[in-house]
């Protein structure tokens, strides 16, 4: 029986410290409460004839005293927890991005290089890793206890989670939001490897295509290239649609006069519900691809469009 949990990421030690703080405070209060119960139970039992003296008339000083003490302790704990929470969910800009799709009842993982795995996640140690997660059906939750992190994975949205693994090893990966019959089987394995091992793993499981290359194929297969220009030469036969070169990360003026910032969500929405946000000076002719492109293909398409950012607007 093990009663300790491996601390395998940069933040797990910090979470453990907060838990230890909470535990110490709790033990102190418990010792006080149980101690007083026992002391009073023995000392003031009905049969004991000990002189109880007089009880104080004014109790409000004591009341104010322990109320204020409780408030101060609680406020300190709140600040401690909130500060840690914000850092737990703020990913650094240079994180390695890995894409995760949850579905009943498995985790599908795709790396930038096109490597795919199911119910497993290989990551390098000593390097921030950011997971971009979505679900194909119900709400799941991606949880790695050894890293002390978890976050719900919602359908129709991209959620993110990041960590910086420190200790190489193999750890549990759980779905912790009840998601239907085989919820308990939605378990996987996180393998944290030395960076060199990770690089070797990537090449050995090279996959046929990188995400970008796979996305380029899909771009043609779904007929996107018929209208959109993508890359220096590709697509854009009849110029009816905006060019996608340099789109990612840039502001897009819309027909209704507003401007949006082209991020993952914008691109995803534009594929699924193109009529929602019409780019200024273009006709709303693009059909909706909602229900026709699965979440994993969307990730590849977005990766491809993202790669066009470097091309610069043409």
């Amino acid at each position: 029986m093990t009663l300790t949990l491996t601390s395998a990421s940069v933040h797990s030690a910090e979470v453990d410290a907060l838990l230890a703080g909470l535990l110490l405070m709790s033990l102190a209060v418990l010792a006080l409460v149980f101690g007083l119960i026992w002391t009073y139970a023995i000392r003031y039992r009905a049969g004991n004839t000990e002189d109880r003296g007089a009880i104080g008339q004014k109790s409000w000083r004591i009341e104010i005293g322990w109320t204020v003490a409780t408030l101060v302790v609680f406020f300190a704990l709140f600040v401690w927890g909130a500060d840690l929470y914000v850092r737990l969910y703020t990913a650094p800009g240079n994180a390695l991005k890995i894409y995760v799709v949850g579905k009943q009842w498995m985790w599908k993982v795709e790396h930038e290089g096109g490597q795919r795995e199911i119910n497993a996640l290989h990551v390098p140690v000593g390097r921030p890793v950011q997971l971009i997660m979505t679900s194909e059906d119900v709400i799941h939750d991606f949880s790695i206890p050894a890293f002390r992190i978890k976050h719900d994975v919602l359908p129709g949205r991209y959620e993110q989670l990041w960590f910086n693994a420190q200790t190489p090893g193999s750890y549990h990966l759980f779905c912790t939001q009840f998601c239907g019959t085989d919820h308990a089987a939605m378990i996987g394995e996180v393998v944290a490897m030395q960076q060199a091992d990770y690089a070797r793993w990537l090449t050995q499981n090279g996959g046929s295509d990188t995400l970008v290359a796979a996305g380029r194929d899909l771009f043609t297969r779904y007929g996107c290239s018929g209208c959109h220009q993508a890359g220096p030469t590709g697509g854009g036969g009849t110029v009816r649609a905006p060019s996608l070169n340099g789109l990612y990360g840039s502001p897009v003026p819309l027909a209704d006069g507003t401007t949006v910032f082209a991020d993952d969500k914008y691109i995803r929405d534009s594929i699924l519900l193109p009529a929602d946000q019409i780019v200024a000076s273009y006709a709303p002719v693009m059909p909706s691809f909602s229900g026709q492109i699965g979440e994993d293909d969307l990730i590849k398409l977005i990766a491809f469009i993202k790669s066009l950012a470097a091309e610069g607007p043409s």
Partner: peptide, 12 residues
Amino acid sequence: TDLIVQTTGNPR
């Protein structure tokens, strides 16, 4: 706030 995925070397 919707997730804005920062990219390295983003021209923005």
